[in-house]
Nucleic acid binder design. Structure first.
Lengths: 210, 210
DNA sequence: GTCTATAGGTTGATAGAC
DNA sequence: GTCTATCAACCTATAGAC
């Protein structure tokens, strides 16, 4: 699938990126077959290493899963840290943020769902997310802050709760991504562009002031 | 909830509600400990029956899980079938629908997440949902249809895509419920009332026509 | 660092008594 | 309908050779 194979340049000692291969294999198993099928046998086979190698690199199953969580959550953490550059027009800001967020969610949501399969895993991930203050509220805060700034600048109508509006926007991204996770035939949700279009229209300052 | 119980016409043989107890126990295990801990032993112990009884009533683990899925999805199916009564003001319609939806999602999302733990379960549930045409799009359709009717009646501004707006609303409910699933400390998302307030304000017909 | 082999422990599912 | 007893299959994790 992902056309990323090691270059055959290496020669001599086999550093054998087994560690990364195992992590990637684990992630792939979770996404494609579900966390219930994530056994040392399955991962090792997919990564092209032995079962024992899995335990060597990641102590136990829980350790491997934690590594998968951190790896998967990292891009989301980076997105949360980077703010939204103010000044740009709402349409481009929402479009860029929305698409970026959905792409990240598409990658992370399967892993988050997998963590729900076991109370211990769930708590571990919740702790990890709490430490970095991750979650939908970060997106709401980012977009809400941006909208408030736009309101202050008079470019967005000021009589609505900016964070409530941000909640709607983030919610539509989250739901769209969630829905893609369950491969149900040809179900159509309003695309991001439509949501942005409606939002921009509704957020326009009172026409009389133009 | 739905006060629909069978008439107690049956007589003679003792029903011994082991079947329902098993189903309830399974649902509880999934919610509290995660589907990975759903073993015949655990379920039987919680239901107060023997392990073999679990297999007697539900053939195998897969059968039990399918029963749990159908049972959990039923209320959602009923919500999807019931439309939204038009004519009522947007605030009450959105409030009633939103709260009802979130309550249902709070109960169903853990089960949907559990189904993601195994490809076979996931596909089975996807099929089931596809058959009844379940999913967020039903909520979007219901609210979108309502908003279009309001637009036609001139009670809602007509220059926005009703279904895009509905998507925002359903999305905010879905995301809020999803977020409650992961017990992270004291994370605050804008409450339903704030979203409805902003939406009502933004959907008001052009002031000039008043 | 990576392998083979295996110990040790759970689990799903069945058989047969009551 | 429900139970006890049991087994084959599977999984995690470790030990020790290369």
């Amino acid at each position: 699938m992902t056309a990323v194979d090691e270059t055959p340049k290496r020669r001599g000692r086999p550093p054998a990126g087994g560690r990364e291969a195992i992590l990637a294999a684990a992630l792939r198993v979770i996404r494609e077959r579900g966390i219930a099928r994530l056994t040392a046998r399955e991962v090792a086979s997919l990564a092209g290493v032995s079962e024992a190698s899995v335990f060597y690199h990641y102590k136990d199953r829980f350790g491997l899963l934690q590594a998968v969580f951190e790896e998967s959550l990292r891009p989301l953490r980076e997105l949360a840290e980077g703010g939204v550059e103010p000044g740009s027009d709402p349409r481009s800001v929402l479009s860029l943020y929305g698409h970026t967020l959905e792409d990240f969610l598409d990658g992370v949501l399967p892993v988050i769902a997998a963590a729900q399969s076991d109370a211990e895993l769930r708590d571990s991930m919740a702790t990890y997310m709490a430490e970095d203050d991750l979650g939908p509220h970060r997106g709401v805060r980012a977009i809400g802050d941006y909208l408030r700034a736009e309101q202050a600048a008079g470019r967005v109508r000021g009589d609505v709760d900016a964070y409530a509006v941000a909640m709607m926007f983030i919610g539509s991204c989250y739901t769209r991504s969630s829905q893609r996770q369950m491969p149900m035939a040809d179900v159509e949700l309003p695309p991001l562009e439509d949501v942005i279009g409606a939002m921009v229209a509704m957020l326009a300052p009172d026409q009389r002031s133009v």
